[in-house]
Design a protein around this nucleic acid. Sequence first.
DNA 1: CAAATATAGATGTATATACATTTATTTCAA
DNA 2: TTGAAATAAATGTATATACATCTATATTTG
Lengths: 165, 165
Amino acid sequence: MTTQQNKNTQQAIHIGSSCACFAVRKMTRAVTQLYDHHLSEAGLRITQFTLMNAISSFGQVPVYVLAEELVMDRTTLTRNLKPLIKAGLVASVPDQKDARVRNLSLTPQGAELLKTATPYWERAQAEFVEKVGERSWAEVSQGISLIDRALSAGPRPSDRMMASR
Amino acid sequence: MTTQQNKNTQQAIHIGSSCACFAVRKMTRAVTQLYDHHLSEAGLRITQFTLMNAISSFGQVPVYVLAEELVMDRTTLTRNLKPLIKAGLVASVPDQKDARVRNLSLTPQGAELLKTATPYWERAQAEFVEKVGERSWAEVSQGISLIDRALSAGPRPSDRMMASR
DNA sequence: CAAATATAGATGTATATACATTTATTTCAA
DNA sequence: TTGAAATAAATGTATATACATCTATATTTG
């Protein structure tokens, strides 16, 4: 048992130290916790803040466009929007030309809350950059952009259609 | 309205392009989707695979130690373990010396499934590295380690106890 | 034009995440 | 030694995430 167990342990250590997904998920938990602790004082989570911010940057945007932009499943976005719509922070109105589409925008209250919460985001961002170092973050940030491009350049759904599985 | 709206839009674009948390969460969604698509063929999610792998690397480990190691709330870990324990992949047994503590380990079935799933993880990892580039990933990986250290070196809970709020 | 196909969003189900609180146990101090 | 404080895990609640599927609408094709 000992030899086999040692083999398993060594293999597991190797996977744990090389798995890209494990690394990015662990880091994301740490970063999210930092931002959430600041944003909680404004009654928002960082996920909600960034979602409202994304809508604000578009002014008005269909669900499917925003989901693609955020690399997020449409159904996930629908679910994430629910509490914001219920709280009167986000408006979802049917499109005039295509009845399937719903356009998202911030309500006046949503825009106001986003403005109120921004200083807390700034503190979180400042603490993060202070801890990590401006230069280091700039480098990692570039790397993240690179990964985003690399992964979004994958095969299109239409290409996959005739492919094996 | 137009001027104010433009201001809001510009501000939102600035936050969206600089927020570290938004960037890492977006990237993590993309990376997780890639790994999940491979691991699903083994009937596991990448989160479950990496959790089982982490337990395997310890051999046996208390919940609170694993949670700290993974930068994960203890309650989150408890919840994530639930389906694995129910499926008979992970064992959770009370510690002999401290009755509060529960030690986690893989069951034989868990070890077997981990082994079976490993080739799918290897394909995911290979696709990721192939798309991103070995050199780029090595650099980003170093940056992630740096961020992990920077954020875990924060104030201990005991230090926070007398702090404001 | 009508039938087949494709698309947008919503819903059912399941897991992932964390805070506040509860329960059981241990440690520490008067 | 016992009562207070601390710790480990579990539970209540709420949001985050995605797949399979469903409904409604739009587009394409025969």
